[in-house]
């Protein structure tokens, strides 16, 4: 089977031998997503048809399910598709086989982060990580602090496009500069287990 990745700016990898496939990948993802049903996919394409993001994706949701099953591990994990999934649950509601596609996309995001396979420099994983750390630190999200940190790790110049909006939000009292976070930060820390996923 030959399969060439067409996405921009991403390392291209060509799979030309069965031996390049990771046969256990499907089982691994099914376990992470609590979704053995993924093996029952009939490739009907309802998920892709109902997905508002599929036109922007490098692989449609239907294709991603097929690729997971076949073991195209690196292609799947480094795709932009999984990060473009906005978790809108359209696919999950429309799948005739009860496959929890949204949860599979989440599992892929986690696996891509764990194995450091996500597209480098792509903004969405950076926002997720920044958000995660902000909550861990203070217990609540302060949008000002979140976005400052995000633009700092992503691209500080991109924030300039939002300066005018930030000023308007500030003057309508919608941009809070300081947020002291929750009282019982130790209690929240206890909820964060050390487990990796």
């Amino acid at each position: 089977m030959t399969m060439k990745s067409t996405q921009n700016n991403l390392p291209l990898q060509e799979i030309s031998h069965e031996s390049d496939l990771d046969k256990n990948f499907g089982k691994h993802i099914a376990k992470m997503a609590h979704g053995e049903k993924l093996f029952g996919c009939i490739q009907c394409g309802n998920c892709s048809a109902s997905c508002p993001m599929s036109v922007y994706m490098d692989h449609t949701p239907r294709k991603i399910i097929a690729m997971i099953r076949a073991g195209f591990r690196d292609e799947v994990l480094s795709s932009k598709t999984i990060w473009l999934c906005a978790s809108c649950y359209n696919c999950t509601v429309e799948c005739p086989k009860g496959i929890k596609i949204t949860e599979i996309m989440y599992a892929l995001k986690r696996d891509a982060i764990l194995t450091k396979n996500y597209p480098k420099g792509f903004p969405i994983p950076i926002l997720s990580r920044t958000f995660y750390n902000e909550v861990k630190r203070s217990g609540r999200i302060n949008e000002t602090s979140l976005l400052m940190k995000y633009y700092f790790s992503y691209n500080i110049f991109k924030s300039l496009g939002y300066a005018a909006l930030a000023i308007k939000l500030f003057f309508t009292g919608r941009l809070i500069l300081f947020e002291k976070g929750i009282k019982n930060k130790a209690g929240l820390k206890q909820m964060l287990s050390s487990s990796k996923n």
Binding site: K109, R110, S128, F131, V135, N184, M191, S193, S195, N197
Partner: peptide
């Protein structure tokens, strides 16, 4: 009293148990 952030879509993308954990709190 003392509620914390629900984690939105970002926690689920990073760590499932912690996403469920902070909301369970």
């Amino acid at each position: 009293d003392d509620w914390n952030c629900c984690g939105a879509t970002n926690y689920m993308a990073m760590n499932e148990r912690n996403a469920i954990g902070i909301t369970a709190r």
